[in-house]
Design a protein around this nucleic acid. Structure first.
Length: 472
RNA sequence: GGUCCCAUCGUCUAGCGGCCUAGGACGUCGGCCUCUCACGCCGAAAACACGGGUUCGAGUCCCGUUGGGAUCACCA
């Protein structure tokens, strides 16, 4: 069988967004599953809206997601000669013609058609024009067959039939000679030997037109697979007004790329009851058979849950590395901070099961790293007072003289103190927690003490004892 | 408006005629665990849009209705 060749073809008129990322992902998965080739092609023929910054942003997004491509990136703006030759062929063979209608005329006729309830379609009045209209630079239109039907055999949708008389004589060359979308896609897909066109559902209506172009050029059509759209909570197509749609925004918010990939793939694809997959599993199991047909609502809560799962399952050493930029961004450390990695990993280890994002992880790391901690006012009032003063002092003295500063030894010390006073562990742990972290929520108190180390612990206890004294 | 697509819990989905008393996951609510918060564990509420067929039998097949979405550019 012919080697699978697929492409992701974004237009650089914005950042890589969630919808585009999923299209890229499905292409990538299909390529990898079939040991095929994944091509990145930048569709930048609309030069007024395309920018190099967006191209960079798209590439950055792809890289962050780990969607590596085998060929490209190709830019359509550097392939105009190719499109020109395809258009010329059509012109020469009478399958395309010059159209002299002005944009204003076209617009007027469209309005008219809309009012009359007809299809908004070019009426073909320049089809059989013999002589050029002087002083007008024409566009080139494709002579679309008007008889019969065009059938799209879609790997996801099944058979979709279009009546040819619904199809427009589409413009393939603008009046300035530049090619338009439908021409460039077909020319490129032919030229690049694309075997499977995997793209958003919004292109389904373009497909019969493109099939006619393939026919005109005398090339067999590729396989098509139209993916369902991703919707916002209001069931409208996901867009900026729904909040974060740029892939890199999820980096900023502390998401792991694998979590986003996992979430995106499950939006519209399933594999029995399974929710969490490694990349290798995704590649192994991926198939269009399991891709759904209905549009899916993007659910940030489930993504957040998945991210927390990925954080819990990531090695702490790895998380320690990943969280450093976030510590800097949160102003918890300064740029260029170079911690003891082993210590950081231990600190992360105590926090990762209570952090849903790297941002949360960074923030909760603050109490281990900061030189000074601030007390939460309510926590201070409730736990650093006359009642805890003695206990805090006892803990401090005990810790100061502990032979081995280990979790086991620290716990032994705590147990002996509560036994002596006949109190529950909470009565002792909470004041110490506030003393060491400033708040009432933290990892296990013995872990905290251990990670903090003897020096910092004693320092903070000292300060808390002073505060408790003043509060008494 | 024309054309095309879609339709199972709030959300993502399993289901490809009998295994469905409709399963899983997120979220929600209760409980357990417990030094706090989490994690984990147990449990609960929660869906086949509607109406016709076909069939011994329909969430599953067909038709219609309704409702959503996409598209109809010298954008891609």
């Amino acid at each position: 069988m012919e080697k699978v060749r697929v492409r992701f073809a974004p237009s650089p008129t914005g950042f890589l967004h969630i919808g585009g990322a999923r299209t890229a992902l499905f292409n990538w998965l299909y390529a990898r599953h079939n040991n095929g080739v994944f091509i990145l092609r930048i569709e930048d023929t609309d030069r007024s809206r395309s920018t190099d910054e967006y191209i960079d942003a798209i590439i950055q997004g792809m890289k962050w997601l780990g969607l590596d491509w085998d060929e490209g990136p190709f830019r359509q703006t550097s392939r105009f000669d190719l499109y020109r030759s395809y258009a010329d062929r059509l012109l020469k063979e009478g399958m395309a013609y010059y159209c002299y209608c002005s944009p204003a005329e076209l617009e007027a006729r469209r309005k008219e058609a809309m009012a009359a309830g007809r299809a908004l379609k070019y009426d073909g009045r320049c089809r059989d024009l013999r002589e050029p209209v002087p002083g007008v630079s024409p566009v080139v239109r494709f002579r679309m067959p008007q008889e019969g039907r065009t059938i799209v055999e879609d790997l996801i949708r099944g058979r979709v039939t279009f009546a040819n008389d619904q199809l427009d004589d589409l413009i393939i060359l603008r009046s300035d000679g530049t090619p338009t979308y439908n021409l460039t896609v077909v020319a490129d897909d032919i030229d690049m030997g694309i075997t499977h066109v995997i793209r958003g559902d919004d292109h389904l209506n373009n497909t019969p037109k493109q099939i006619q172009l393939y026919n005109a050029f005398g090339y067999p059509v590729p396989e098509f697979a139209h993916l369902p759209m991703i919707l916002g909570p209001d069931r409208a197509r996901l867009s900026k007004r729904h909040g974060a749609t740029s892939v890199m925004a999820y980096y900023e918010m502390g998401y792991l790329p694998d979590a986003l990939v996992n979430y995106l793939v499950r939006l519209g694809w399933s594999y029995g009851d399974r929710e969490i997959f490694t990349r290798e599993e995704l590649i192994r199991y991926f198939s269009f058979e399991n891709v759904g047909r209905a549009a899916a609502v993007f659910n940030p809560e489930k993504l957040l849950w998945l991210n927390s799962r990925y954080i819990i399952n990531s090695p702490s050493e790895r998380l320690a590395e990943l969280v450093i930029p976030f510590l800097a961004r949160e102003n918890i450390v300064t740029e260029g901070w170079n911690p003891d990695r082993e210590w950081l990993a231990r600190a992360v280890d105590t926090l990762k099961e209570r952090s849903k994002t790297l941002v949360e992880l960074a923030r909760s790391l603050r109490c281990y790293i900061a030189a000074e901690i601030e007390y939460d006012e309510k926590a201070r009032a409730k736990f650093l007072n006359e009642e805890s003063l003695g206990l805090l002092t006892e803990v401090r003295e005990g810790l100061a003289t502990l032979d081995v500063f280990s979790e086991a030894e620290i716990e032994r010390l705590f147990r002996s103190i509560i036994e002596k006073h006949g109190i529950k562990l909470g009565r002792l742990a909470q004041p110490v927690r506030v003393a060491l972290t400033g708040g009432t929520q933290s990892p296990g108190i013995f872990e905290v003490i251990c990670v903090l180390g003897r020096e910092k612990t004693l320092q903070r206890l000292q300060k808390a004892i002073k505060t408790a004294g003043e509060n008494a």
